[in-house]
Amino acid sequence: MAGMSRRSSRPARRPARTATPPSSRACPCGSGGTYAQCCGRFHRGEAAAPTAEALMRSRYSAFAERDEAYLLRTWHPRTRPPRVEFEPGLRWTGLEILATSGGTAFHTTGTVTFRAGHAGGELREHSRFERVGGAWVYVDGDVG
Score class of each variant (00 low, 15 high):
Arg25Asn: 13
Arg14Thr: 11
His107Ser: 14
Glu68Val: 10
Trp92Ser: 12
Thr93Tyr: 07
Gly45Phe: 00
Ala48Ile: 05
Val112Gln: 00
Thr79Asn: 08
Phe42Asn: 01
Arg6Glu: 15
Ser127Phe: 00
Thr20Arg: 03
Ser101Asp: 14
Val137Asp: 00
Ser127Met: 11
Phe129Cys: 08
Thr111Ala: 14
Ala62Trp: 02
Gly94Asn: 08
Ala2Asn: 14
Gly45Val: 05
Pro88Glu: 14
Thr20Tyr: 01
Ala48Ser: 09
Pro15Ala: 13
Arg128Thr: 06
Arg80His: 09
Ala49Thr: 02
Val137Met: 04
Arg131Phe: 05
Asp140Met: 10
Ser5Lys: 08
Thr20Asn: 07
Glu65Arg: 06
Tyr138Pro: 04
Gly40Ala: 02
Met1Asn: 11
Phe42Trp: 01
Ala64Leu: 06
Met56Tyr: 02
Met56Asn: 11
Glu122Gly: 04
Thr93Lys: 06
Ala12Val: 05
Gly32Glu: 10
Gly32Arg: 03
Cys39Gly: 10
Asp140Ile: 05
Arg13Glu: 13
Arg57Asp: 03
Arg78Thr: 15
Pro28Leu: 01
Ser9Met: 15
Ala62His: 04
Ser101Asn: 08
Leu95Met: 06
Cys27Gln: 04
Glu130Lys: 07
Val137Asn: 02
Ala116Ser: 07
Arg66Gln: 14
Phe106Ile: 02
Arg83Val: 14
Asp67Glu: 09
Arg17Asn: 09
Ala16Glu: 07
Trp136Lys: 02
Pro81Gln: 12
Arg91Ile: 11
Leu55Met: 03
Pro22Ser: 09
Val112Ile: 10
Trp92Gly: 10
Arg91Cys: 12
Phe114Cys: 08
Val112Met: 05
Cys27His: 01
Thr109Ile: 09
Thr34His: 05
Ala19Cys: 08
Phe114Met: 12
Glu87Gly: 07
Phe42Val: 02
Arg17Ala: 15
Arg25Tyr: 10
Arg80Ile: 07
Ser9His: 14
Ala64Gly: 08
Thr108Lys: 01
His126Ala: 13
Tyr70Asp: 07
Phe106Asp: 07
Val112Ala: 02
Gly30Thr: 09
Phe129Trp: 05
Pro82Val: 05
Asp67Lys: 00
Val132Ile: 11
Arg131Glu: 12
Asp142Val: 15
Thr109Tyr: 01
Gly40His: 00
Arg80Gln: 15
Gly30Asp: 09
Gly40Phe: 00
Ala54Tyr: 02
